[in-house]
Design a protein around this nucleic acid. Structure first.
Lengths: 185, 185
DNA sequence: GCGGGCTTGTGAATGATTTCACAAGGTAAC
DNA sequence: GTTACCTTGTGAAATCATTCACAAGCCCGC
């Protein structure tokens, strides 16, 4: 981005929308990468972080639900760029099964367990209606998936060994709504 | 959901995936809605919250960017259900302009300012590549939008009077990646 | 109307996160 | 080599958020 060989915590903070102290504290959690008086070597820091975050390797991902959100996820370049490969898309609706999303064939949700055993995906993205989400999470967890990113607007429970994160777009809009109502106060 | 007329903080917590103390603390920020010994009246609480969060009224939304994510957002029922109405979708690409997404015609990004002046949308959803995001945010802010939900994977800056929230799906995956790498520790 | 059993609302305690502030270490110019 | 100047890494302080715990209030049965 810049021609710099090296970058200071302050510059990183400006780029990331945070503070220099925050950046240094965060990085110090993993170790000490910088040189005092100079800053951080861009290339060394970048590869250390890739290593630490596990972005060097390829992660296989299955998408459960081929509706609007599932389709958008399947086609999202941001994932591929970071080493996340969509190895399967699943849906319940016969009308969708057999179609393709960005080169991946939509398979029947009944194949989920057997496919997971075979493909051993690391991550499952849940993009189904709220009512169906917990059931499908239980199924993918039982089949061996250990990391889940949930897009259904409902809280889910998983065993302790499984990592779950949720993205709730409707909630984000409600927060904006609240901010608008209370704007002038 | 239940036939109850009234609901306790504990039940709300279970549904929302949190704790009863948390629920009570959060609600107490807005006022005091419950009856001791009994709980909260479902209908009264529901309408109070709708009022406070501004969900009673309709909010007009424009979507900037008619790519994968923009299209998914335009078609997302979760928004309409909560009173958010998509009044415009904009793109730069002539191949997309003129097409329709869920009944809304995709318009040329050059019309953005004049349309915003006319339609007075309350919220803009930014669904363009990272490089273009700041420029478009500046444009919609200048045209009068005061609340922005950003889906581009980049930090943005807005004037203080504007509320900005960001959803970063790639970052969510990176966090999962880190969790997987450090699973057994 | 009184007592037992719930549940709220909220201070106080605890825990987590962010910011401050500065010694220690490094660069670069002379 | 020495000096002037930067920037990191990190304890300590401050801020923010969550959890605890309990008095106060309300319902209901008798």
């Amino acid at each position: 981005m810049h021609g710099h060989q090296t970058i200071s915590s302050g510059e990183l903070a400006a780029q990331g929308g945070t503070t220099s102290a925050q950046v240094r504290k965060d990085l110090s959690f993993f170790g000490s990468f910088g040189k005092r008086g100079l800053g951080y070597s861009v290339s060394a820091l970048s590869s250390s972080l890739r290593e630490i975050l596990g972005l060097g390797r390829q992660w296989n991902v299955v998408i459960v639900g081929a509706g609007k959100i599932g389709a958008a996820l399947a086609q999202y370049e941001g994932f591929r760029d970071r080493g996340f490969k969509v190895v399967g898309v699943y849906d319940e609706d016969p009308a969708r099964v057999g179609g393709t999303l960005d080169g991946v064939v939509v398979r029947d949700q009944r194949e989920l367990e057997s496919d997971i055993m075979k493909l051993k995906p690391h991550i499952a993205l849940i993009a189904v209606p709220a009512e169906a989400a917990q059931t499908l999470v239980d199924r993918v967890v039982k089949a061996g998936v250990r990391a889940i990113l949930n897009f259904a607007p409902t809280p889910l429970t998983v065993p302790e060994k499984v990592t779950l994160r949720s993205v709730n777009m409707a909630l984000e809009l409600e927060i904006l709504s609240y901010a608008l109502v209370n704007a002038g106060e």
